[in-house]
Design a binder for these strands. Structure first.
Lengths: 351, 351
DNA sequence: CTGTTAGCGCTTTCAT
DNA sequence: ATGAAAGCGCTAACAG
């Protein structure tokens, strides 16, 4: 049970009958090694199942071969999807992925202060961190490129969606079906509104204004809880909306639960629109504004790799498209013919 | 824009007016440094916002301070939950988390062959990899401790649940409500059955046998698709079951979709039981056997840390408890009084 | 308690 | 095309 000391490069050199530097060159695919010798070295390495120590090479090259992915939380659907997009792209570029879950804004602050990443990664991908200017500047101090994923950061590489336009399009879907009383449910937690939340609301307001419809924004906690509470309030309003646009699918689920419990048929009495297109949305047949989370991650990773190769702009911006996924939670309103449709067709058939 | 060279330990030493080794000791919290000097060194380091290079220390200590977490996929709910359990525990132990998504069994094979982890991590946590004996042995060759999370590996540290007992308990829940025709839906993909699948089925068979009830096992593809197909077949059986136990929540959702589409009331006509208790289960009010995924991850991480400190057994096993979460998708069967209940109470109230 | 001296396992000039 | 030698930034004996 004595530690089976792993072979070092000198072992390979010895076995192949060449020098250390030749092994180094051969294994890295560096030029200046004759095919014959290269093959011999490779065989020797394989026979010993030799693996280079990245620590040792990093020490001299200065590159670690690692990129840190910082996420606020690991559990929500969103981050699994983003990481799934990032991981293969990083791997393809020969980079390892370190994942750090930093928690809410406050925890992030302490984390960034300590700069533990400095000198220990080649780049960092910040996923949906919702940073303000000051925090963004702090991240700059890490001293390696920081790529923003699902957040737009001025003057820095970022990959994101146009929340304003996406939300406006979603709102117009409802408006075009004939709805006039369209409510928007937004959420805020202890640390305030997220950028996404704000931008989506702006898109909603913009579309409502363009249609000359009276906006109705309800704010509550985040998640299903908040959605449920908001929907309850909406149900008790003087003139309840015929359509509800929830900031996120999750909020929509909370609203949907209240609607079901109240025996309010969806979409007959109330149309419900979400945002995200998470896994649950399909199961619950929720119409939603889909954002390409996997792609957001993949693009961020590719951008990171290019940055590291020096073939990308230090401030490159990538805006990815969103898409309205129409399912069965939205339809023309029950009582009025659609503004732009000529018959009151129930898209869903009888319940 | 010249690279702002990061300070090295010698810079700190110079600024603090001490030697290199003193700085090293002070910064690592090693003994043998006077409080005064230690403070001086720490101040100097802070002023320079100095961060040690792990690569350099690793080179000499032999420990990398990193553990690899290997998962087949990143996207499914399960892995986000597991990583969320692992991450903070690793961090608490001063370890960084590298995440590798290896894909299905075949890809894993190639991955393990290459041993890229060798010499580059201190330990690896294999999450739900569903390895057979040969593959497990291959992993041993990495040369560092491998902790199995959500899989039992004989003779190796592992954290898992008792799928047999959990499935038996779930089955008994259905039996005790008065169901006799209880079907079990299992899934298999191209690479065959998973261990979890097999064990859960065994638990089901065992409980059915004990109750003297005729088992009915249906096999189909994995995921919602499979659940839907299996349910469709069940609905066309000579004498359809009054209760269905799905191998996983996801499979249950597929079944549920078919049930809804067919206007078969759940649980009135068919009770449905899942396994996992994923996020969606709560939204859909699915009764399910909950497994503590977050805890599974956390325990695996803690075990890893202990192993690295040398304070854990090389073959320590941790069996975590599962729990039946009763929601509204299961009830006594419609037509017969419950075996162990005296009235035919509809637990759900009128639909 | 503090400083000096060797390396850790690689990559990289610089020779040959 | 290949080899010899000099470090990369740190830790770990070993002295003092």
């Amino acid at each position: 049970m004595a530690a089976p000391e792993h072979p070092r490069m000198s072992d390979v050199a010895h076995r192949a009958g060449v020098s250390l530097s030749t092994v180094s060159r051969a294994l890295r695919g560096a030029p200046g090694v004759s095919p014959a010798v290269r093959a011999r070295v490779e065989r020797a390495a394989a026979e010993l199942s030799y693996v280079v120590s990245r620590d040792a090479s990093s020490l001299v090259t200065g590159a670690t071969g690692r990129v840190a992915v910082i996420v606020p939380f690991l559990r929500p659907w969103f981050f699994g999807a983003a990481l799934a997009g990032i991981s293969p792209e990083l791997r393809a570029a020969g980079l390892d992925m370190l994942v750090y879950e930093v928690g809410d804004a406050e925890a992030l602050d302490g984390y960034v202060q300590a700069l533990p990443l400095r000198r220990n990664v080649d780049a960092v991908i910040a996923v949906s961190l919702d940073l303000d200017d000051r925090e963004t500047k702090q991240l700059d101090d890490i001293g390696v490129p920081v790529v923003y994923c699902s957040q737009r950061a001025e003057g820095r590489p970022s990959v994101f969606i146009d929340n304003v336009a996406a939300a406006a399009a979603g709102t117009r879907h409802l408006l075009n079906l004939g709805h006039r009383r369209v409510a928007y449910v937004q959420s805020r937690d202890e640390t305030g509104f997220s950028w996404g939340s704000l931008h989506r609301r702006d898109g909603y307001l913009q579309a409502m204004a363009e249609a000359g419809a009276e906006p109705l924004v309800v704010t509550d906690r985040a998640g299903q809880r908040g959605g449920a509470a908001a929907m309850a309030r909406l149900l008790g309003a003087p003139s309840p909306p015929t359509a509800v646009f929830a900031e996120s699918d999750d909020v929509a689920f909370g609203a949907l639960a209240v609607l079901r419990r109240s025996r309010v048929p969806v979409p007959e009495a109330v149309s419900l629109l979400g945002f995200d297109d998470n896994d649950v949305a399909a199961v619950l047949d929720l119409t939603t504004v889909a954002q390409p989370v996997h792609e957001l991650g993949a693009e961020a990773a590719r951008l990171t790799a290019r940055l590291l190769r020096g073939t990308a702009d230090r401030a490159e911006h990538l805006r990815l498209p969103t898409e309205l996924v129409v399912r069965r939670s939205t339809s023309v309103p029950r009582t009025s013919p659609g503004m732009h449709l000529h018959s009151h067709t129930d898209l869903r058939g009888r319940q």
